[in-house]
């Protein structure tokens, strides 16, 4: 019985994920809803992304500096910070921040709408709730998470620069030139594909859990928790899988 329910939930989830994405190219389009979501997800998350990524960049640079100075290899800080931020930390950290702020918001908003019969009202008005509610959120995550990731990576590198120059007393010019050296097509691609995948995962997971909310305030708590937990786990797992695949495809040897 439990397994049967799990399977049918999974089936619903896949259907929703697919229809939420397909809604981007199928009429009718709800531009305004997408714009509102983009404003909330993008502009609204900018500050927290900047703060978090800045400190991650600084901490990373500091740790590396402490370790590498023992080995007399502090000049490699720029390169290592660059690679880890561009390929790994920037996309993952930004996605986690996005989950906490935007994903949790999506799940609780949709959950409240379900409980208040607002989703039913939308259906009765002749709207397809997937198009009206899910697709705008998928679109906004697909656009905004990559944009935030770019900003986050830049800020992380700045944080690294600050520590590198003012705390570890290394040359700033050398830092930026090593960053420029690692910004090869392969490295950038290895990082740039990720936020699209993460954004899509966050949007569909959080919309699905939000829309399947049942059972009042406790149900809402469960679905919001579920949305965040599932998103985080899926981000981390898919990050590993993506890294594995991308490194292979882009021809890195491991």
């Amino acid at each position: 019985m439990e397994i049967k329910r799990l399977l049918s939930d999974l089936q619903d989830f896949y259907a929703l994920s697919w229809r939420g994405l397909a809604g981007i190219v199928r009429r009718p389009f709800y531009y305004k809803d997408a714009l509102i979501q983009m404003d909330y997800a993008g502009a609204g998350s900018l500050l927290i992304v900047v703060i978090v990524d800045l400190f991650v960049g600084m901490a990373l640079s500091l740790q590396l500096s402490a370790e590498l100075s023992n080995l007399g290899m502090k000049m490699y800080i720029g390169m290592i910070v660059g690679i880890s931020v561009v390929r790994e930390l920037g996309p993952v950290v930004t996605a986690l921040v996005f989950t906490g702020r935007v994903g949790a918001g999506m799940a609780s908003e949709l959950g409240t709408m379900v409980l208040g019969h607002q989703v039913d009202t939308i259906r009765v008005f002749g709207f397809d709730p997937v198009k009206k509610l899910v697709t705008p959120r998928v679109v906004s995550s697909l656009i905004m998470l990559p944009a935030l990731t770019i900003i986050g990576v830049a800020v992380s590198l700045l944080g690294g620069y600050y520590i590198n120059v003012f705390v570890s007393h290394q040359s700033g010019t050398f830092y930026w030139s090593s960053i420029r050296n690692i910004l090869t097509t392969e490295n950038v691609l290895a990082g740039a594909i990720k936020p699209f995948v993460f954004g899509y995962l966050i949007a569909v997971i959080c919309c699905y859990t939000g829309l399947s909310t049942r059972g009042g305030a406790v149900g809402l708590r469960q679905s919001t928790t579920m949305a965040v937990v599932l998103s985080i786990v899926m981000i981390i797992i898919s990050d590993f899988l993506l890294t594995r695949v991308l490194l292979y495809v882009l021809g890195f040897s491991v």
């Binding site: 208040g116 019969h117 607002q118 039913d120 259906r123 009765v124 008005f125 002749g126 709207f127 397809d128």
Partner: peptide, 23 residues
């Protein structure tokens, strides 16, 4: 499904017991 029911639903207008305004 919701897509196929659109035209049917447009024939009706409902006032839910709970009101169900968009809050």
């Amino acid at each position: 499904g919701d897509g196929a029911l659109r035209d049917v639903r447009m024939k009706f207008s409902i006032v839910f017991q709970e009101g169900a305004l968009f809050d």
